[in-house]
Amino acid sequence: MKPKLSQTVGRTLKKASPTILTCIGAVGVVATAVLAVKATPKALEMVRADSRKNHDGDPYAATKVEVVKSCWKCYVPAVATGAATVICIFGANTLNRRQQASLASAYALVSRQYNDYKRKLKELYGEEAHKKVMEALAVEQVDKDHFISAPGLVGSSSLDFEDANEEERLFYDPISKRYFQSTISKVLQAEYHLNRNFALGGGFITLNDFYTFLGIEKIPEGDAIGWMVSDGLYWVDFNHSKAMVDDGLNGEIECYIIDVDFPPVTEEEYDPYL
């Protein structure tokens, strides 16, 4: 256990060494200035004392060379600290460049292996299998730190439970024709808060409002289309269904489809006079 712990600590320190040296350099800059300021009164006293001794009692007659000879020892700590600071700064820069070079090498290796994988996949299973794999990988990543809430009379309203540790599932949005990963409760919260804003605010709610609650990227036309309060429409009904989709690699997996009874349209399309 001890060798493993020491190895882990060693690797962690090695990775963090540029940051550590940068922090030490920042502290060193401040320390150098403080030491220089503290040394100045003592240095002035020594210069004046030597000037009186060498120039018949005149404390301000010392030459520049005599000033340096009189007070240089007072600034040794500040100079040493400054030199160490410079070394830390250059050392951090050197280590950072090495890490960047290592990352670039690793990226090149991964890229080469990925290209080899694509080539071999096409050779063994054909172009169609490659397309299925790429489509399965094109699952939009939800903002996992996204907190769903809406303003209320007293404060913000939310149904979220912290650290719920729910299982993420695959969802499909037919309107934007894209897949995304999320939890069932997150999706239900997004639908609830969209309808809550719809009922309380009235007027027009956009498709991008829904995507914002889901934590996925907005679409360009999503701010222009949505749902408006009108005769017979005061609530957006969502329909959920489950289907099996082939990811092209591991076989069929469950996918939850989110559909609506009334698709979003522009505000003008709701106007009976247009």
Rank of each mutant, 00 (worst) to 15 (best):
V76T: 12
T81A: 08
T63P: 00
A83V: 15
C88A: 15
A101K: 11
L109K: 13
V68K: 12
A61M: 12
V110K: 13
D56M: 05
V110L: 14
G82C: 05
A83L: 14
Y114F: 15
K118D: 14
A108P: 00
G82L: 05
D56Y: 10
A78L: 05
A62H: 03
V65Y: 09
K64V: 03
D116M: 15
V79T: 05
T85K: 04
D56N: 08
K120C: 11
H55R: 01
I87F: 11
T81C: 09
A108T: 09
A80I: 09
L103K: 13
K64T: 10
D58L: 05
V76G: 02
G91I: 03
S111G: 03
G57I: 06
K69Y: 08
N54T: 06
L121H: 04
D116Y: 11
A108L: 09
A92Y: 04
V65G: 06
Y125P: 01
G82K: 02
P59F: 06
A61C: 14
A108V: 01
G126E: 03
A104S: 12
Q99M: 07
Y107R: 06
A80R: 03
H55C: 04
K73D: 12
L121M: 10
V110C: 10
H55P: 01
N96V: 03
P59N: 05
N54K: 13
A61F: 09
G82A: 07
Y60H: 06
D58I: 01
W72I: 13
G57T: 09
H55V: 03
R119E: 13
V86C: 07
K64P: 00
V67G: 05
G91S: 08
K64Q: 11
R98M: 07
S70A: 15
K73R: 14
Y114P: 00
K69I: 04
R112T: 14
T81D: 00
C88P: 01
N96Y: 01
Y125L: 05
I89H: 08
D58N: 12
N115L: 13
Y107H: 03
N96Q: 08
A80D: 05
A108C: 02
L109R: 15
T81V: 12
A104H: 01
D58M: 03
A108R: 07
A83F: 11
N96F: 01
V110I: 12
A62E: 00
P77A: 07
V65N: 10
Y117Q: 04
R98F: 00
N93D: 11
R97D: 07
D56S: 11
Q100G: 07
E66K: 07
N115A: 15
I89C: 13
S111D: 07
L103H: 08
N115Q: 15
H55D: 00
A108W: 00
Q99K: 09
T81H: 01
L124G: 04
V110G: 04
L124V: 11
K73N: 13
K122I: 05
S102R: 10
Y107D: 08
L109P: 00
R119N: 11
G57E: 06
Y125K: 09
Y114S: 14
T81Y: 02
Q100E: 12
A80Q: 09
C71R: 07
K118P: 04
K120F: 08
